[in-house]
Design a protein around this nucleic acid. Structure first.
Lengths: 150, 150
DNA sequence: TATTGTTATACTCTATAACTATA
DNA sequence: TATAGTTATAGAGTATAACAATA
């Protein structure tokens, strides 16, 4: 093997593109095995705590009018429910049902088990990857909150 | 500052999710500034060389029937054209027009300039990021060909 | 008045199945 | 027969604008 040459920033852009595509392909595959679309899987994964429709829209990166339909379909399948906020009757907080929580747990487990490369990284490599990702994609605000769904 | 603790694999999954989301948000923003959807931008970026509809479907990760519509809309805007393959008249090779090539160049430049963190990485960090991404998302085949679009 | 969520609308993306034209 | 691409169809995601209920 010749000594590995460092990639140019343009090369790295391609690597990031492949990685992002691979991540979403994997996520969509896992969601699909549960009869869910990518957006439905993302939505469920965002609900570790109840959240208003508007907050969900922010984290999903789409308009609030879209969330109505996405939540409608998940609610029709019994995976979540709307609850009127007692302090502001305009707000509807979306909460996972027990069935929804079980689905999220299974999805999370399948996501991890499918990325064996992730579990095989040693402590130093995990730290390095975290540092590099944070430098390339610095958190910008609320829309960047921790989301397994991506 | 306390010494940084290494993230768990589960933590890293969240970081990857955020990075993937940030990449696509950025790509969609750039495409949108050119009046293109995410899929349209990805499609154009894939056409550094002419490619059959079927190959495009493979790289985009969708059914061939979808490609018909996506290519239709890009063709209607003069960004690419279909050419019947002289060696197999069933095949249609899709090729960027001059206008399409210009659009791709502008999109690529905006993609890079928006990721300043990428250009600020030194050689060692670029090599490390490439190595880590490759380990977590090993290339699996044709569908993993270099694609700036992701 | 301003805000939350919904509805109506139109467009894009998506897979499945049936079709055509080639091979 | 098999393959490349299209069409038809139905469902899901998307933004915009208008709306009802609440603040």
């Amino acid at each position: 093997m010749p000594p590995t040459a460092p990639p140019t920033p343009a090369d790295l852009l391609d690597h990031l593109a492949r990685a992002a595509a691979a991540y979403y392909r994997h996520f969509a595959d896992v969601a699909s095995r549960h009869g869910l679309t990518l957006m439905q899987g993302k939505t469920l994964s965002l609900l570790s705590r109840p959240m208003p429709m508007r907050g969900l829209a922010g984290l999903l990166g789409c308009d609030t009018s879209n969330v109505t339909g996405i939540v409608d379909r998940l609610q029709a399948r019994g995976l979540l429910r709307r609850e009127v906020d007692p302090t502001d009757r305009r707000v509807k907080n979306v909460r996972l049902t027990g069935q929804g929580e079980q689905a999220v747990q299974r999805i999370r487990a399948e996501l991890m088990s499918g990325l064996t490369g992730l579990e095989h990284l040693d402590r130093e490599d995990r730290l390095a990857l975290q540092r590099l990702l944070t430098r390339v994609f610095p958190a910008t605000g609320a829309a960047e909150a921790p989301v397994t769904a991506g």
